[in-house]
Write a protein that binds this DNA or RNA. Sequence first.
DNA 1: TCGCCCATGTAATAAGTTACATGATTCG
DNA 2: CGAATCATGTAACTTATTACATGGGCGA
Lengths: 178, 178
Amino acid sequence: MALAHAILALLVHQPMSGYDLNKAFEESVGCFWKATHQQIYRELGKLEDQGWITAETIAQEGRPDKKLYSMTGLGHENLTRWVAQPCDVMPIKEELLVKVFVGDLVPRAVIRQQIEQHRQLHQTTLERYRSIEQEFCSSTDPSPMMQFGYLVLRRGIRYETDYIDWCDEVLATIEEKE
Amino acid sequence: MALAHAILALLVHQPMSGYDLNKAFEESVGCFWKATHQQIYRELGKLEDQGWITAETIAQEGRPDKKLYSMTGLGHENLTRWVAQPCDVMPIKEELLVKVFVGDLVPRAVIRQQIEQHRQLHQTTLERYRSIEQEFCSSTDPSPMMQFGYLVLRRGIRYETDYIDWCDEVLATIEEKE
DNA sequence: TCGCCCATGTAATAAGTTACATGATTCG
DNA sequence: CGAATCATGTAACTTATTACATGGGCGA
């Protein structure tokens, strides 16, 4: 049910289309949830059936019609109730760590290359988060919603920074003994 | 295919039963992969069909028979090839972060409580990793396999430490304005 | 005697991925 | 003229979760 609530969480602030939601998951919101457009459209259908959201079809000139989804009172109630419920720690599933774990099966260069590649990917993500952070800081609107959004972004920044530091630790260790 | 490779990665070092694998995923290996026993038994069946592992049934007194799985040459080849293949960054899906994101819907105390609870959970996991680290350090066997295992554990320790620090950051921010 | 450890599985459902499918507009 | 953006979806398939199911031994 978590994807449903992630979608509702985005619709609290403003109505959005499936397309908008997909972009959000790819960009800023990517630091706490991930979903493909197929999942999003399917889930939006379910949420509408349950009456947690409503759709309004907007005709547009020169581009396809879009469906703007808004949260209903029922959806709002459900989301609020869900926020207060205890939740589990999300399990970690890291392919890269499985590879490092069996690093002794391959030449050192293979692991070094994998780590270097991931360091690069996390660096790129970190830079994206940093530029979103700049927008927060330069904005003159210190609303409470922005505060919570900023705390989530902080988690993303911390995570990426820490991952990069770990990569450097690994690289230092494997170079040491070559 | 990643679960299959995570299982193979554990079977490289010694033969194990489904039960053993499940315990491993719950304990030390939990810092890089998670699987339920149902998934494990199903996957073991598939891996055996493919000829990547072989089973040997061990009759035991006073307790159920067990099936000890060992990796075959084919399994070893496949695992080795997989380690060298590039892989994607694993997406983050954090229910807690979704909740913090919509923290303005509920009283401050609700978010504070959620954060405190998760801080506690991550603290417990960190302590578990720290005690595994102690075993590594006191061991007089600095084999290469141990080195890679230690690097993976370092990732777990870093992750948990960083998560706890973030929790403290959130708690400081929400107390500030009460 | 109650509950945990050992040890394995099936069945049903939910969630996620991959491939397929369309079609106009706008920018380089 | 090709690629990207906007905008939506279906269908098939693979993974993961949850519930159900069994049964002896062993320690508090």
